[in-house]
Structure formats: structure tokens, C-alpha cells
């Protein structure tokens, strides 16, 4: 098991301890790692510091309350935190509702399959490495697409790059990520 896989299983353990024992120390560990990232994410999306601080606290509180819905066979803890932060950003900054897909008729398994969890952790690891190894120009566009409020045409206006170039760089980046996952 690599260092970052080990870290991810440590985060999963924390979520389980919150869910089963309302463990504040486990929550504090998650908070120290994820809250500063969520705050940066919200500020890049246009929140001022006070709003980002408040929303980060709300995101982390949501994580506590929804710990029973987390399914380690379906998403890493980082992905789960990202979706909660994203939804908070849409709600607080864009003041829109966020329609979510209908849930599948089955929910999280009480005892998720360990092999599935391990497989997902390895995928997450590979994805993180592939993202780190993207050429700078491609990675920065992917990050802007997730962090920013900007559409492709707004990125084009801001960077002066032709829209076609932006689209093809993003496509190349996605191809590389897919290739790394197969």
C-alpha cells in the first residue's frame, strides 16, 4: 500500500468513527486536512474570506451529519468532500438549486466489499498521479474548470486563447487521464 492509499484508508476510518462513535478526534483530523482545501476552493470560486470561512464550516458540519451516507466503494473521501463543497458553492454563491440524479434503488452497503474499496483507492491514486503528470497548460485548464466559475468561452476571453485551443487542451488532458486509468 502506498503512502497516499494509506492516507485515504485513514480518512475512511475517520468517517466510520464519526458515523459509529460520534468521534470528535476523528472529525478534527478530517477537518485539519480538508477544511483549508475547501476554503481555498470556495475563495477561488468567488467567495470573500468571511463567506468562505462560514461555508467551509457548513461543509464540514454536513460531512459529520451525512457520514452515514458515505459509501467508500463508490467514492474516495476527497471526492465526497468535493461534491459537498461544490453543492454549497452553487447554493451560496450562485443562489441556485442543484438538481441531483435519482438515487439508485440500493443504498450504501452496511459492509462494503473490501476488494471494491481497495480497487477504488488504487484508481484514485492513479488518477492523482496522472493529474500531477499532465503538462502544465492542460492541468491548469482542468483546475480552472473545477475551481472557477468560468465557462470555456469565459476562459477564452480571459486568457486570450482561442476557444478551439482550450477545448482541444481539455480533450487531450481527459484522454491522458483516461489512458492512465486503463
Amino acid at each position: 500500500m502506498t503512502a497516499s492509499e494509506e492516507k485515504d484508508s485513514q480518512w475512511i476510518e475517520c468517517v466510520i468513527r464519526i458515523r459509529e462513535q460520534a468521534d470528535q478526534a476523528a472529525f478534527a483530523a478530517l477537518f485539519r486536512h480538508f477544511a483549508p482545501r475547501v476554503k481555498a476552493f470556495l475563495m477561488k470560486g468567488g467567495a470573500d474570506e468571511a463567506l468562505a470561512e462560514e461555508c467551509t464550516q457548513e461543509v464540514m458540519a454536513t460531512l459529520w451529519h451525512k457520514a452515514h451516507l458515505f459509501d467508500p466503494a463508490r467514492a474516495s473521501v476527497a471526492t465526497w468532500v468535493f461534491t459537498i463543497a461544490r453543492n454549497r458553492r452553487i447554493d451560496a454563491l450562485r443562489r441556485q438549486r442543484r438538481p441531483e440524479p435519482e438515487d439508485l434503488p440500493w443504498g450504501p452497503e452496511p459492509e462494503p466489499d473490501q476488494a471494491e474499496i481497495m480497487g477504488l483507492q488504487q484508481d484514485t491514486e492513479r488518477l492523482g498521479e496522472a493529474l500531477a503528470q499532465l503538462p502544465e497548460k492542460q492541468r491548469s485548464l482542468i483546475e480552472r474548470a473545477y475551481f472557477g466559475e468560468l465557462s470555456h468561452s469565459e476562459i477564452a476571453a480571459e486568457t486570450g486563447l482561442p476557444l478551439g485551443t482550450i477545448k482541444s487542451r481539455i480533450r487531450l488532458a481527459l484522454d491522458r487521464l483516461r489512458h492512465a486509468m486503463n
Binding site: 480538508f34 476527497a78 468535493f82 461544490r86 488518477l127 492523482g128 493529474l131
Partner: peptide, 12 residues
């Protein structure tokens, strides 16, 4: 969404 998770994980 997993890409978003990694962007967050590796971000500032």
C-alpha cells in the same frame, strides 16, 4: 467527480 476530488486534494 473523482477528478474534482483530486483537484481539491492537490489544490491550494
Amino acid at each position: 467527480e473523482a477528478v474534482g476530488g483530486q483537484v481539491l486534494e492537490r489544490g491550494d
